[in-house]
Amino acid sequence: MTDLQPLVIVNNLVKHFPVMRGILIQRQVGTVRAVDGISFFIAPSETLGLVGESGCGKTTAGRTLLGLYPPTDGQITIDGHNLRKAHGPTMMAIRRKAQIIFQDPYASLNPRWTISAIIGEPLRVHHLISSEAERTDRVRELLRLVGLSPSHLNRFPHEFSGGQRQRIGVARALASDPKFIVCDEPISALDVSIQAQVVNLLEDLQDRLGLTYLFIAHDLSMVRHICDRVAVMYLGVIVELAARDELYEHPLHPYTKALLSAVPIPDPKKDRARRRTILAGDVPSPLNPPPGCRFHPRCPIAVEKCHQDVPEWREVISGHWVACHLV
């Protein structure tokens, strides 16, 4: 990508959720290790994909990264600001520069607010407007930018379809003129014909506004389309990270290989011809992850060492990181 300073740096990010019990005085009876030490950076105007199956911690990672959940450990730097030390005006500056788009277009818009109020909220919070008229103008402009009619200003979310609501979510995220947007599975709740619309919109906006994305998804095909680099997550840790084509053409980690081979190919002849690695079993609970390499109980090539030692996170080829004993 660029030689510029990365816009987002995440170093050994940990997010544990305590499991509490008790009536008046609560005590901790367990820990959900949702994110257990992940590190990556994102360069300006780059799209980093974060893929994994449900329960792997990708959504928690995205939310913790923005400080929506307080991190348990690790450093997060967004646009030069240390998020863990930020409060007051610095925190507001980060909130302005880093935004999020959610998966469910039905749950992510306040059903009792008009579109104008929803998209105008960041403008109001960050004092980016001085009058009501200015807000209306900006909201109209944002609606036009995401391909909606500015006349929809005073409508409520329930009057829109899923794809249109997702556009409203994008407009809200853009309102404060951010540099970095966490896209948390923004298309997985949409119909196939609508998915392409939203992905194209995100790409257009990136080209136009120089945005930086963290694109969280479970759909590997769409990730390949939109991302520059891809990180694969399994049970709270990143197991492989590489440039897009490198990862898809030369996957190193057995989990990445299995994941790729599980993706259905929309071509009957190719699909019949290819040899699939079908993973046995399910993802274990993050409440009690397996020792050693977390993937070893499902790994087709696991050896004795994998049961005990946590594999080191290392750079195999320039820019291609992997955590596996057998690579």
Binding site: Q164, I194, A196, V199, E203, S221, R224
Partner: peptide
């Protein structure tokens, strides 16, 4: 409109307008 995991990134996905 389908992206292909085994195919390189094309310039743009072809989207179906409207709903």
């Amino acid at each position: 409109a389908l992206p292909h995991a085994e195919r390189r990134r094309e310039s743009r996905l072809k989207s179906i307008p409207g709903a």
